[in-house]
Simulated scan of single mutants.
Amino acid sequence: MSERTPGWYPDPDRPRSIRWWNGSDWTDEQPPQPSASTPALNSESTPETPPKSRRGLLIAGIAVGAVLLVGAGVAVGSSLLNREAPAQAAASPSATKEAEVRTTPSAAAQPTPEAPPAPTVMAVGQTLESKNFHLTVNSAEILDQIETTDGAPLTPAAGTQLVLVKTTYTVTGPNAVDLTCGNYDTFIRGYDSEGGQMAETFETPRIPGNQPCNQKIVTGQTAEWNFAYQMTSGRQPGALVVVDTNFYGEGSWGEENVMALR
């Protein structure tokens, strides 16, 4: 210390204060109050060091700021990724297609539904041999009117035409059958060439060739059975669907049989 010239220096006992060095020793002289004329520290003095408490606050502040900045960066980055993900997916249709390929079963692996077998259609003149009867379609004619055995002829309604179907019916079961006024062993529906159902006229008792009403035919007996339909104009007769209603016992219908009308 003897080499120092007299002057104000940082107090070795109180680092935040200055003290007068007289050239050989430290004195108790108080420094002057700060003013424009206050002498500066000796050029050999060192800068003031912040106290430990301030250094701790400063370091903690820097650390917290860094954490906040890093956290903010992660949050912003995550937000951007979330916003960019749909755009990237939309911009990459190949990835979507690849995902579909992975999740969609192969078309070759999928079973092809089988079409139901086409029904056997019996030709005109061929006999349907059911359990309780035999039935043969002889003809189907489109007529402007159908003559009757009683009263005026049958005429079609507007937009329709008449179809006269002629068949031969043989009883093979044990029950006697009234073909004209109540055949309970046979159920028949008629269809045109476009698949539309033809409408029954319910005029069987008046059509020539039929048995009188309430006259039954018995087992082994054959009779004509003729009936009329109304059909949409411009179409052709299609087919009859015939069911034996007592094939498996009374009231238990058998299979449907298709009989052509042309």
Score class of each variant (00 low, 15 high):
T155A: 10
T222R: 08
Y191H: 06
T38Q: 09
N214Y: 15
P32K: 06
L164H: 00
W20H: 11
T148W: 00
Y169E: 08
N22Q: 01
D11K: 00
V177D: 02
G196V: 10
V67H: 03
S17G: 06
G190D: 05
C213K: 09
W8A: 12
E141N: 12
S78R: 12
P156L: 01
P156R: 00
G251M: 04
Y191T: 09
V74L: 13
D192G: 05
E194M: 07
V243M: 06
G195T: 08
G61A: 15
G209N: 09
A123D: 15
R16V: 06
Q230V: 14
S79E: 06
L154E: 09
P86A: 07
R55W: 02
M231D: 03
F133N: 00
N246W: 15
S2C: 00
S17T: 08
S139Q: 10
A60W: 12
L58Y: 07
S35D: 12
S53M: 09
R55N: 10
E84C: 00
S106L: 15
W21Y: 14
P113Y: 09
P111N: 06
S252Q: 10
T172R: 02
G238N: 13
A75C: 02
P117V: 14
Q88H: 04
A91Q: 14
T148I: 05
D192W: 02
L143E: 07
Q126V: 11
M259I: 13
N82K: 06
S43E: 14
S106Q: 09
F187L: 14
R83G: 02
